[in-house]
Design a protein around this nucleic acid. Structure first.
Lengths: 223, 223
DNA sequence: CAAAGCGTCCCTCATAAGTGGGATTCCACC
DNA sequence: GGTGGAATCCCACTTATGAGGGACGCTTTG
């Protein structure tokens, strides 16, 4: 405890287009004044970048969706202009895709807004110490995905009983390709594609590619 | 001003599963202590209903998405058990569909979380006085929709240049019907359906029904 | 090892889908 | 009173799609 008290407070910039969130964070973090210090608040990416020019900030805590440009854009901007400043995304979107996008854009953390105050501060301190953090609620799911990807046993649509190959085919169908084009892309005969499609229709309980696409997009298997 | 000061403060119950939001609202509304008073906070619909049993509450301010049941459920519950208590939805979902659903379920207001403190308090006072309020950001759009519906000049897909008939056809295609089935449903010849489809493809810039469906669903024209 | 599942390819056949013409009526707008 | 778009229908033609078979090699699994 005393070891941590010696360290300087983390300087934060809060970025969110909703005042409620800014207020909420401020009031949450007030209880941890020794550990975190709110340097400033911004309502969009432009304001945020401007603020970083002439203020000390260790971590930018930003929502994903902002008014002028997304938090993802902000990540890239900060990563290129101020590589020493970490950006942590704080969002309601409990979505793996967003997480991956954020991390690829240089985010050092991805937390959900349902996080508690103490936990938030703890994660911020870990980021300050060089860690990359992921919200515990997402971490489990992500690890599972990663494990499945590693062993090659996971692909979109697997939960519907589709094989990997069938998923590849359905994906291309969803993108509007003809059987011939799909065959060319996958280095297959057109007949093979048809065979796969027949299996897909049987498994999905549909009669043609149109319904299959509708189902795939509704269930968010592909987009 | 003095006339308003004479009135009693509005007793609020805040409902949201995110602590940040509860904290944010609390700290926002602290500046308006004479006009609003926070009776309590709840994390889900069950807690909220329980709280209403033995506390004075004038307005329930709730998110749409909660842990146990939605804010919509809460609306119905409160409307039937405590018709004298108004429920106001406060949400990030800037979506007309949610708005309509909430109002049909008895909500007395629909506000977006991006609202400012002063405006929030003003809207709450209007609800207390019997008004039904809609966030100004949504109100314009809603009025436009309503006007278009009234004059019959609005249908899904109109913004892409589709005619009303073409939209009907595309809708049925999206639902997986064949040209023949569509013709039967709309009392048309199959050729007519084909003619419409060709126009649709031209206007959407696609080559077949599969891509048209993908586009329609991606753009959320139909689902 | 045998069975099962997957992935690949092949064939035939029926029909659905899509194109490009042309035609008619109705209605609104200039 | 003409122009043009929308909606309807028709025909001829080409191509894509899907069903129903069968066949072969490969792996996994019991």
């Amino acid at each position: 405890m005393s070891a941590e008290m010696k360290e300087e407070a983390i300087h934060l910039l809060l970025v969110d287009d909703q005042e409620i969130i800014l207020d909420g964070l401020t009031s949450m973090l007030r209880r941890f004044e020794g550990q975190v210090h709110i340097s400033g608040r911004a309502k969009d990416a432009v304001d945020a970048v401007k603020f970083l020019e002439d203020n000390r900030v260790d971590i930018v805590l930003s929502d994903i969706r902002l008014k002028n440009g997304s938090g993802i854009d902000l990540c890239r901007e900060v990563a290129s202009r101020h590589p020493e400043i970490a950006v942590v995304m704080l969002t309601v979107y409990d979505d793996e895709q967003y997480l991956y996008q954020a991390l690829r854009s240089g985010a050092k953390g991805f937390l959900l807004k349902q996080i508690g105050a103490a936990e938030l501060v703890e994660q911020l301190m870990r980021v300050r110490d060089g860690d990359i953090v992921v919200d515990p609620h997402l971490a489990g799911r992500v690890a599972l995905s990663a494990a499945r990807l590693h062993s090659g046993e996971f692909w979109p649509g697997a939960h519907l009983g589709l094989t990997q190959r069938e998923s590849e085919v359905l994906d291309l169908v969803t993108k509007g390709h003809s059987n011939k084009a799909i065959a060319a892309k996958l280095f297959l005969g057109e007949e093979t594609v048809k065979t796969h499609l027949s299996s897909i229709y049987r498994k999905l309980g549909v009669r043609d590619r149109t319904s299959a696409v509708a189902l795939a997009m509704r269930e968010a298997i592909f987009r």
